[in-house]
């Protein structure tokens, strides 16, 4: 089975985040870049599918040269191959251009059976790349997957559970397909020292716009219909009132505060 996992490098939320005292904005010092948390589940699921059904896992990422580090993490976990899509021409991509670029990279990999994406990236937070990519590649899509029940390679069918607001929906569709995964799907493995060392030495091919073909005006800033025009830090939430007193008294005050403001009605 040919498995492709799409991963994005994002700034770590673990990083020390400070408030600038004058402007009240966030200052990040020495921000670390990590694999998007949801993509770790995607990589793990790809490797598990390979272990269950045989085949090969290729990880692919679009980003600046340092996104190579994210791909190395995936190789250390057990992915077989990695490709980096990197070119100055890709800078400023929104989700439409990102999905387009990734689709060309995946087409270049040849026939595939399944593409796995994370549910969303923790910086852009849109959850749009997966569905957009499925359209570009003309694949069936199953979003928010919490469990792959079965892949039947003979009938070329996948059956999966997806998490929707009111419960779990079980669906089945034909391969090739694209799925996006949520955290519930697995517990990502921690790579051992040996595989980390091996991954550090891995050669990762870099494909630019020339290698992908396609129309120059569909990439990067020019190929992106959306544009950020303003960024602002929402006023930090004011810490409110600590209700004092012994438990029964404090609870009574809390209920009074909530009912008088119509937050709860009893």
């Amino acid at each position: 089975m040919k498995i492709v996992v799409c991963i994005k490098q994002v700034p770590s939320t673990e990083a020390r985040v400070q408030m600038d005292p004058i402007k009240g904005t966030l200052i990040r010092e020495g921000v670390e870049s990590v694999v998007n948390p949801f993509d770790e589940y995607a990589i793990e699921e790809g490797i598990r599918l390979k272990e269950r059904y045989g085949g090969e896992v290729t990880v692919i990422s679009m980003g600046p040269p340092q996104a190579r580090e994210a791909l190395k993490t995936a190789l250390a976990m057990g992915a077989d191959k990695a490709v980096l899509l990197s070119d100055r021409a890709f800078a400023g991509s929104d989700t439409l251009a990102t999905a387009y670029t990734l689709s060309l990279g995946i087409k270049k990999l040849g026939d595939i059976d399944i593409v796995i994406c994370g549910k969303q990236a923790t910086d852009g937070d849109t959850a749009q790349v997966g569905p957009g990519l499925a359209q570009r590649l003309n694949l069936r899509q199953i979003t928010y997957v919490s469990k792959i029940r079965e892949i039947n390679l003979k009938n070329r069918k996948i059956t999966a559970e997806r998490l929707i607001e009111s419960g779990t929906q079980v669906v089945s569709t034909a391969l090739p397909a694209l799925i996006t995964v949520v955290k519930d799907i697995n517990q990502p493995r921690i790579p051992n020292i040996f595989s980390i060392k091996k991954a550090t030495r891995a050669e990762i091919p870099v494909w630019g716009m020339q290698d992908l073909g396609g129309d120059p005006k569909d990439f990067g800033f020019d190929g992106s219909p959306t544009q950020v025009v303003r960024i602002f830090t929402p006023p930090p939430r004011q810490g409110g009132e600590i209700i004092q007193g012994e438990v029964p008294e404090a609870v009574a005050k809390l209920i009074e505060a909530l009912t008088s403001r119509n937050i709860i009605n009893l």
């Binding site: 929104d94 989700t95 439409l96 999905a99 852009g124 937070d125 849109t126 959850a127 749009q128 790349v129 997966g130 569905p131 957009g132 990519l133 499925a134 359209q135 570009r136 899509q141 979003t143 928010y144 998490l163 929707i164 607001e165 992106s224 219909p225 959306t226």
Partner: peptide
């Protein structure tokens, strides 16, 4: 911007090749 809405909008915008702002 529900689970269904995001599944739908992401695919539709790609089909129409237009911009989509999330959430």
């Amino acid at each position: 911007a529900t689970t269904m809405g995001r599944d739908f909008a992401g695919a539709l915008a790609a089909r129409l090749k237009t911009g989509l702002t999330a959430d």
